[in-house]
Simulated assay, not measured.
Amino acid sequence: MKRILVTGINGQLGQELSAILPSVGEVIGVGRAELDLTETEAICQVINQVKPDIIVNAAAYTAVDKAESEPELAEAINAIAPGTIAAECEKLAIPLIHISTDYVFDGSQSSPYQETDKTNPLSVYGKSKLAGEIAIQNNCKNYIILRTAWVYGVGGKGNFVKTMLRLGKERKEIRVVADQIGSPTCTLDLANTITQLIPLFQPEITGIYNFTNSGVASWYDFAVAIFEEAKLLGWDLQLERVIPITTPEYPTPACRPAYSVLACGKISTVLGTFPPHWRQGLRKMLTELFKTTL
């Protein structure tokens, strides 16, 4: 049975992986308490102590707006650490699965981004994640970089779905941006994909892949769907209306891509199946979350 080292085990994706990955191997999970990703020596030490057969790097600095004022920290966790992990993987001749983001693109396209399309991140966060991708490619031969988008799940401290539900209990009206388009992605579906990739890992499938749930939505569409599904489950909400607004009406420190839909044909060919629709993922997540709040 493979020994799988998972970083970021306490995050929303990490928690999902800790539940699913035991079906394909022994999981050794490390969080911030066990591994400081800003310490190069600590990274090398943990990897050499665990002696894994594969590493899944699910850890990241994901505070997109905060990164604008903490560029060094974002760079350390999202760029330098993945390069260090990749170099250790190369020394030990083991593969690496690394999670990246749609924010490596600038959103100027109007058709789904292919893995080969030109990157041009707009934010400190996006730039740090792209630097991490490059560091992995420069340090390691056997890797899968999995670009995903708009991730949410039952675990972790907070995400768009949890924020909307909290606001829906407190307010009658919520204003949500309607001119940023992407694909909401449930951690359960993302974790299932990573779990499927591990037994399939061969040098021939090394490279960059996109994975999101199928379908597209604006943040406004996503919010409306969250409330529709939550009400069907019997969630107690005060909300009466979701109001669509433009990006300039909700200014943020970080600039976000207006269109960041990712084409998932390449990963679907490897897995032999297309990703579930985002609305299905949302329904599964809310059903699970509802159980934990009863």
Rank of each mutant, 00 (worst) to 15 (best):
A76I: 03
A76Q: 14
A76H: 11
I77E: 00
N78A: 10
I80Y: 01
P82T: 10
T84P: 01
I85V: 14
A86T: 09
A86M: 09
A87T: 04
A87R: 09
A87H: 08
K91Q: 13
L92A: 13
I94C: 09
L96H: 15
L96R: 09
L96A: 04
I99P: 03
T101R: 02
D102P: 02
V104A: 08
F105M: 07
G107S: 12
S108E: 07
S108K: 12
S108F: 05
S108V: 10
S110G: 06
Y113K: 06
Y113P: 00
Q114A: 11
Q114D: 13
E115S: 13
T116D: 14
D117E: 04
K118P: 01
K118I: 13
T119Y: 07
P121M: 10
L122K: 08
S123C: 08
V124R: 00
V124W: 06
G126M: 02
K127T: 10
S128C: 09
L130N: 03
I134P: 03
I134V: 14
A135D: 05
I136N: 01
I136Q: 01
N138D: 15
Y143T: 06
I144D: 00
I145K: 01
I145T: 09
L146I: 11
T148H: 13
T148R: 05
A149V: 01
W150E: 04
V151L: 08
Y152C: 06
V154R: 02
K157S: 14
K157A: 13
G158L: 07
G158I: 11
N159P: 09
N159E: 02
F160L: 11
V161S: 00
K162G: 11
K162C: 05
T163E: 09
T163L: 12
M164P: 00
L165G: 01
K169E: 12
R171E: 10
R171I: 09
E173C: 09
I174L: 15
R175M: 11
